[in-house]
Design a protein around this nucleic acid. Structure first.
Length: 857
RNA sequence: GGGCGCAUAGCUCAGUUGGUCAGAGCAUCCGGCUUACAACCGGAAGGUCACAGGUUCGAGCCCUGUUGCGCCCACCA
């Protein structure tokens, strides 16, 4: 910096009002957050931004965690990195489907042909949803999500996210679909993806398969029913079950191999009540002697334990629950007798719930229900978005290997978890426990409509049956494809569904199968290899702790298979937002707070301040008090800057060499420590600490340093005055840059009053530079001077005097009076002391004696 | 049943390798229009650091156990 005089553009009445709109526009026009793709990998910091679900509404939790990411982005940008900070929109999947159905009053019927002229009903009637083709449905999804995205973008900009808005993607756009299909085809070619017909957790409402990661347990009431099976000699064997309706699906009984009570039964058979089906009695270590009667019935399939037993004991299959959650009409194998068929007919077509009631009636009639059912509550598995218990249904599905069945894959993925840097570190254990606890591969197919279709067709044999083991795949160059509306190479559309022709795979991929590729999608994998080589693997994955098992894990899986590396170096995990009653905020609880109202009441920077005060991985309460504090800090920065600039004056030397006074150098020395701490904190992803250091320094700077030096600075033409003025400018510049990541609007506003360009393009302050400016400055000098000033203020306050009341005499004693003495003139002026004496003593602590003038009457 | 995390002033939280570490802000109370800021400023009062042991010259800090809260996982008949 030169010593030329500058012009200050300080408003008369600084205010936060309207600064968001003002700077959002300026930033957009100047492109200050634009990613510079000419930089090399080591000059780039790349972020795998979480794509928010646009069909959901924004809530304050988004503002919280996205601010954390923005803090890092802004810090790295000021450190000189070209920051790759894209934004994705997750518009793929069930939430969008539901919203589109309600919004437009339509429902998807894949059997209907595409109508290019379709327009949705003017007045949606939720009771009479208009059936539309899959392609029409998807077009509506795209139309609505485009509108939702605009709303989201507006809020993000208003929040001050320094996203490069020229780099956006949507999880349903062509690029994402092509990437998801390409990755899948490569998984398929390498044997990492496969199709299997197997018992699958099934949501009967959405009529789709569900993956392990999407399960949750809910407490449900039920009842134990004590039911008699019969030995060949007619004597009963009592089992207890909460699902008597599955008795026709029973394929065996099972007890623990060591259970004395059932030794004579193992290897033999019993017959089921009502149906009289003969089933074997088996032993298995999973059966628990102290549960119920110690012997359980195995059905196909009541729960996942049944699946385990069925597989390991190689039992028969007697499915009775259909895709719609009702008892299927035809009885399963084994139900042969006339009486059994009649009994089954009473259940056929009923819901599981109704079937249970009817089964209990029949058990009562046959005398096989012992006593009355005993009420109980037990955890039942649900799809996290569903509202009926999951059933287990045998279906044909696509899977991707994830270590759930291969020890070597699991070990490799565990090693990836250890390779990744976690903030906070203990989040790593969630990953490890999840991977260690996997009990099957990743089920990626969903029987839904709005999503990425599997890029696969199947040839039909002469009878029109699909040959699933000979899938037809497209050329990668043709991606994305929609097998439901495009014919595979070598076929024509007329051959669809015809014997000897083909059929398209009807399913779509789970939304995580696409979002697990977010680093590849955003980074230009196979689309823009130059970009990809500069940003991948990415530096940072920020995300919530709840989706470690889904998004984080699946992204690691895909990158490991496709790229042979971690998708990013570091994962930063945000905590929950709790409402003021410390309950987790979630839509289902109805305690969600939208950010717009808060943004308007407190300003964006105030919300960011609150968000920045929450540490990574730590749950944080929604605290308007903190927002008030943030607002106050912002206003203080405006006012203090205005004051400091007016005191310094446009002719002040903006040169470190002009800082000559011990107090001024002391202040800069203290500031150098703050810069050092804040920098170290940011490097360790500890933004809270960086903020706390900057903030504490700033308040002391205002309360003490500004008060101490203002009189001296006001002098004209002295070296001492020039020193204060130069120090003020040096400090302002550093302080404003320290706050820039946290309070981007406020920092930009005050920076613009006296500097050219954006503070967000300025360089992060270097502790070494500040220390060099401080020369021999000793932080203890400012501390000592402040201590004396505080003592004076305390005396005045206790005497109920105004702060500008004159003081007769101030006497300072202690071993280190010299520290205060070098600021003698400043202390006297700030304290309005007529006399100021220093006396050296042995006391380590500085003591201050204040003599006030006799009370004026 | 297993795991992870948390427990410090009325509230929200700092306390980095054990040695002025008992702190900040809010709220409360007292005082002050002080020419940057009254949407402001100054000051005060507030805590057996969940509990019980242990290690140590010395423990919010390390170890063990207990209790309470939150979350995750689990094969839940």
């Amino acid at each position: 910096m030169t010593n030329r005089s500058r012009s200050f553009r300080v408003p008369d009445k600084p205010s936060l009002d309207g600064i968001e709109a003002k700077w959002v526009d300026v930033w957009d026009e100047s492109g200050v957050y634009r990613f510079d793709r000419t930089k090399s990998r080591d000059e780039i910091f790349s972020i795998d931004t979480p794509p928010p679900t646009v069909s959901g509404s924004l809530h304050i939790g988004h503002a919280f965690s996205y601010t954390h990411t923005d803090l890092v982005a802004r810090y790295q940008r000021m450190r000189g990195k070209s920051v790759f900070y894209p934004m994705g929109w997750d518009d793929n999947g069930l939430p969008t489907e539901r919203r589109v159905q309600n919004y437009y009053g339509v429902r998807c019927d894949p059997s209907i042909p595409y109508d290019p002229d379709f327009s949705p009903p003017a007045k949606p009637d939720p009771k009479r949803q208009v059936p539309v083709s899959r392609r029409n449905f998807i077009e509506l999804c795209e139309r609505l999500t485009a509108e939702d995205e605009k709303v989201f973008e507006g809020v993000w900009r208003r929040m001050g996210l320094s996203v490069d808005w020229t780099h956006t993607y949507a999880t349903i756009d062509d690029g994402s679909r092509a990437a998801a299909q390409r990755a899948f085809l490569r998984n398929l070619a390498r044997g990492e993806a496969y199709m299997a017909e197997a018992p699958t957790l099934w949501d009967v409402t959405f009529r789709t398969a569900v993956a392990q990661a999407e399960l949750e347990d809910r407490e449900r009431t039920g009842a134990y029913h004590k039911v008699a099976f019969h030995r060949p000699d007619g004597t009963p064997v009592h089992i207890e079950t909460t699902r008597p309706e599955l008795i026709p699906a029973c394929v065996a009984l099972v007890a623990h191999p060591d259970d004395e009570r059932y030794q004579d039964l193992f290897g033999g058979t019993v017959t089921s009540p009502v149906f009289g089906v003969e089933v074997p009695v088996k032993s298995h270590w999973l059966a628990e002697p102290d549960k119920g009667s110690g012997i359980a019935m195995i059905c196909t399939f009541g729960d996942t334990t049944d699946v385990t037993w069925w597989r390991e004991l190689q039992l028969e299959t007697r499915p009775i629950v259909g895709w719609d959650g009702r008892i299927i009409s035809d009885p399963p194998p084994g139900i042969g007798s006339e009486a059994a068929r009649e009994a089954y007919a009473r259940l056929a077509g009923a819901t599981v719930h109704t079937a249970r009631e009817r089964m209990v009636e029949m058990l009562r009639e046959s005398g096989d229900l012992v006593g009355e059912p005993t009420p109980t509550t037990r955890p039942v598995k649900f799809y996290e978005k569903g509202d009926k218990p999951l059933e287990v249904v045998t279906t044909r599905q696509w899977y991707i290997r994830n270590g759930g069945r291969d020890a070597d894959v699991r070990d490799r993925l565990l090693a990836r978890g250890r390779e990744l840097q976690w903030h906070p570190d203990h989040m790593r254990s969630r990953y490890e426990h999840w991977v260690e606890g996997l009990n099957g591969d990743w089920l990626i197919s969903r029987q839904r409509f709005f999503g990425v279709p599997f890029p696969v067709w199947y040839p039909l044999d002469g009878d029109g049956n699909p040959r699933y083991d000979e899938p037809i795949v497209p050329d990668e160059a043709a991606l994305p494809v929609d097998p439901s509306s495009e014919a595979p190479a070598g076929y024509t559309e007329e051959q669809r569904g015809e014997p000897g022709g083909f059929t398209g795979d009807p399913d779509i991929m789970d939304t995580w199968a696409t979002s697990s590729l977010s680093p590849q999608i955003a980074g230009g994998w196979e689309r823009d290899e130059d970009l990809f080589s500069r940003v991948f693997p990415m530096d940072l994955r920020p995300q919530g702790q709840d989706i470690i098992r889904t998004w984080l894990f699946s992204t690691v899986v895909r990158a490991d298979f496709e790229n042979g590396c971690l998708p990013w170096r570091t994962a930063a995990i945000s905590g929950w937002i709790l409402d003021p009653d410390r309950k987790k905020m979630s839509k289902s609880k109805g305690n969600v707070v939208t950010p717009i109202d808060l943004l308007e009441r407190y300003s964006s920077d105030a919300i960011r301040y609150w968000a920045a005060s929450g540490r990574l991985g730590t749950d944080t309460a929604l605290d308007e008090g903190q927002m008030k504090v943030g607002r106050r800090l912002s206003i203080k920065i405006l006012n203090a800057t205005k004051f400091a600039l007016s005191v310094a004056g446009e002719d002040a030397a903006d040169r470190p060499e002009a800082v000559t006074e011990p107090l001024d150098r002391s202040m800069l020395a203290a500031l150098a420590e703050v810069v050092e701490d804040a920098t170290a904190a940011f490097e360790a992803y500890d933004h809270t600490r960086a903020l706390e250091r900057a903030e504490r320094f700033f308040w002391e700077f205002c309360d003490d340093y500004l008060e101490l030096v203002k009189a001296r600075a006001y002098e004209e033409g002295t070296a001492e005055s020039a020193s204060a003025r130069a120090a003020l400018l040096q400090a302002l510049s550093v302080i404003q840059r320290l706050f820039a990541p946290f309070l981007p609007f406020t920092a930009e506003e005050v920076w613009s009053w006296w500097r050219e360009g954006s503070v967000h393009a300025a360089s992060w302050p270097q502790a070494a530079d500040v220390r060099a400016a401080a020369v021999d400055g000793d932080p203890a000098v400012l501390e000592a001077a402040s201590a004396v000033l505080r003592a004076v203020r305390k005396s005045k306050s206790e005497a109920k005097l105004s702060m500008r009341a004159e003081v007769e005499r101030v006497a300072v004693r202690g071993k280190h009076v010299a520290r205060a003495r070098v600021a003698e003139g400043d202390i006297r002026a700030a304290g309005r002391a007529a006399a100021l004496d220093f006396e050296e003593s042995d006391a380590e602590e500085l003591s201050v004696e204040v003599t006030l003038p006799p009370a004026a009457e």
